[in-house]
Simulated scan of single mutants.
Amino acid sequence: MNKALRNPLIYLIFVIPAFVLFLAFFIYPVFTAVNNSFTSWNGISKNITYIGFDNFVTAFHDVAFWKSVKNNVYFILFSCLVQVPLIVIFSLLIANVKKFKGLYKTAVFMPSIMSTAVIGILWGFIYNPDFGLANKILGVFGVSPIYWLSDKNWAMISILITNAWQWTGFYIVMVLAAILAIPKELEEAAAIDGATGFQRATKITIPLVMPIISVVIMLSIAGAMKAADIVLVMTKGGPAGSTDVMATYMIRYAITSFRHGFGNSIAVLIFIFTIIITVLYQVLISKRTERIEY
């Protein structure tokens, strides 16, 4: 066995299939999208006209495009400023329960394994202005019914809440695993020294799991930049484009309007924006999070 593992061909046998799949389903589509972004093409005909950077210029001069960019920024801000703190809080709470810990972990993880279409339809019923649970609860306090998904003042926040509900549990499990891996002796020593539960959480637990929290933030940013399915299911970008994100904007032109070249230019911009934001986060914030050994 050891002799076989010293043979480079053995490694090639395992690496080549994965490398071929990587080329076929990632590298090739990326280069194809970049190439098509410089064309005027409907995605069907054989007539492909290269028009240089015209698609990008058109996008940059389109108010609807910048509105979709702004909505992606809302996704990022909501994820980092609202969702991530809730993830940390719930992870700390679940980590400290004595009974049914497995039940709680399963309960919070369940939404993340459900189809986004199911999530969107479910929350569509919750947001229904006539019989939805949200308005029923508000009605108890005398609040008039709100048209959550058809009012542009409420549609975006409704989608953000739904998206957070779906993915918060997935990240809770990640942070919870890091918390449970911390040696109990550290908190026991702090408790003996008189540290309160809040002090132990803020001075010991959270600093020790900051590398995982940093990963959660980065994944949230990447997820926010490619958000599309929940928007398509719940509002299709409406009302009046108020919930459009870059991905739905791209889909509208690439598929619905048969402007495949323009749609590919938006896909390239999404890729570039995601890379820029991720690199900035890694350089400015993530690298400052030191890995703590214990």
Rank of each mutant, 00 (worst) to 15 (best):
L5P: 01
I10Y: 14
V15P: 01
F19P: 00
L21S: 13
F25W: 11
F26V: 14
P29D: 06
F31R: 06
T32E: 13
T32F: 13
T39C: 06
Y50E: 09
F53W: 08
D54M: 09
D54S: 13
N55R: 05
F56L: 05
V57H: 06
F60N: 07
A64K: 15
F65C: 07
S68P: 09
Y74A: 12
F78V: 01
S79K: 12
C80S: 13
L81W: 11
L86D: 05
I87E: 09
V88T: 12
L92H: 04
V97Q: 04
K101P: 06
Y104V: 00
I113W: 05
S115R: 04
T116A: 10
G120T: 09
G124I: 06
F125W: 12
I126A: 11
P129M: 10
F131R: 11
G139Y: 04
F141L: 14
S144A: 14
N163R: 10
A164C: 13
W165N: 04
G169S: 06
I172C: 07
M174L: 15
V175N: 05
L176N: 03
L180P: 01
K184C: 06
A191N: 14
I192E: 03
G194I: 07
G194D: 03
R200F: 07
A201L: 05
M210H: 06
I213C: 05
M225H: 04
K226E: 11
I230H: 04
I230G: 03
L232G: 06
T235C: 08
A240C: 07
T243L: 09
T243A: 09
D244A: 13
A247K: 08
T248D: 08
T248H: 01
Y249E: 07
T256F: 14
R259N: 13
V268I: 12
L269D: 00
I270G: 09
F273S: 14
I277K: 03
V279H: 00
L284R: 10
K287M: 02
T289S: 11
